[in-house]
C-alpha cells in the first residue's frame, strides 16, 4: 500500500496515542523501522500487520480504529492539507459528496501511483445518499465514514452516517443530511497561500 496511507496511519497512532505506543506497534508488527516514507510504496501485508497489532495493543476493534483514522485525517491540525484538498470538491457538503465520484481521479492527478478506494455516490432523495466504497482491502469504508463525519463538521452540516457493512471488496455507507447549514463550519479560501 502506498506510503501516504501507511504514513497517515503512523501519524494518527503517534499523535493520538504517543510515540512510545507507535514505536511498540511498529516493533510488534516487525517493521524493522518506525518511520514510513510517504512517497514509497510498501507491501499490503505491512499495512495489515500495523493495523492488526495497533488494534491489539490499543484493545480496540479495527473498524473503530479506522474510523478514528478518517476523522484524524481531516481534523488534525498538521494534516490541514488533506482537508483543503477535499474542500476543493465543492461549496457545500452535498457538492462535496458528489465530488467523491471523482476523488480517485483527482488524487491520481497528484500522486499517479497511489491506489485508493473507488467511491460511488448515489442519492435516493435530495437528502439521503449512499456511498459505495470498493477496495480490495476490507475495512477502508470505516476510514471513509470518519472522513465524511469530519468533513460534515467542516462544512457545518448535520448528518447521520451508517456503515452498512458489505462483502467481497464492497462496503456501503448511508449518509443522511439532516441540516446542510447546521453550524458555521470552517472557512475555506480557494487560493490560500501555498507554502
Amino acid at each position: 500500500m502506498h506510503g501516504l496511507i501507511n504514513r497517515s496511519i503512523q501519524c494518527f497512532l503517534r499523535d493520538t496515542y504517543g510515540s512510545d505506543v507507535w514505536t511498540e506497534i511498529a516493533a510488534d508488527a516487525g517493521l524493522g523501522f518506525d518511520n514510513f516514507e510517504a512517497l514509497l510504496v510498501y507491501e499490503d501485508a505491512v499495512t495489515e500487520q500495523v493495523l492488526r497489532f495497533a488494534a491489539e495493543r490499543l484493545d480496540k476493534p479495527v473498524a473503530l480504529l479506522m474510523e478514528d483514522l478518517g476523522t484524524y485525517l481531516i481534523s488534525n491540525v498538521g494534516s490541514g492539507g488533506l482537508r483543503r484538498l477535499l474542500r476543493f470538491g465543492g461549496v457545500s457538503f452535498v457538492d462535496f459528496l458528489h465530488s467523491l465520484d471523482d476523488l480517485q481521479d483527482r488524487v491520481r492527478l497528484a500522486v499517479p501511483e497511489i491506489v485508493l478506494p473507488a467511491l460511488e455516490v448515489r442519492h435516493s432523495t435530495m437528502k439521503s445518499f449512499t456511498v459505495v466504497c470498493s477496495f480490495d482491502r476490507p475495512g477502508f469504508g470505516h476510514v471513509i465514514v470518519g472522513i465524511l463525519r469530519a468533513m460534515a463538521d467542516d462544512y457545518g452540516a448535520l448528518v447521520l452516517l451508517n456503515h452498512l457493512g458489505g462483502n467481497s471488496g464492497i462496503e456501503v455507507i448511508e449518509v443522511e443530511v439532516l441540516d446542510i447549514g447546521f453550524a458555521r463550519g470552517r472557512s475555506f479560501a480557494l487560493g490560500a497561500s501555498v507554502t
Binding site: 512517497l39 484538498l85 461549496v91 480557494l190 487560493g191
Partner: peptide, 30 residues
C-alpha cells in the same frame, strides 16, 4: 484567485481553474 478571494461559484463549472488550483496545492505538498 488568492488576491481576490474567489470561490468555486465564481467560475463556470466547465472551467478547470479550480482543478488547476487543486493540482498546484496537491503537487506542492507532494
Amino acid at each position: 484567485v488568492r488576491d481576490h478571494d474567489l470561490t468555486n461559484a465564481d467560475f463556470a463549472p466547465t472551467d478547470l481553474t479550480v482543478e488547476m488550483l487543486y493540482l498546484i496545492e496537491a503537487k506542492t505538498a507532494v
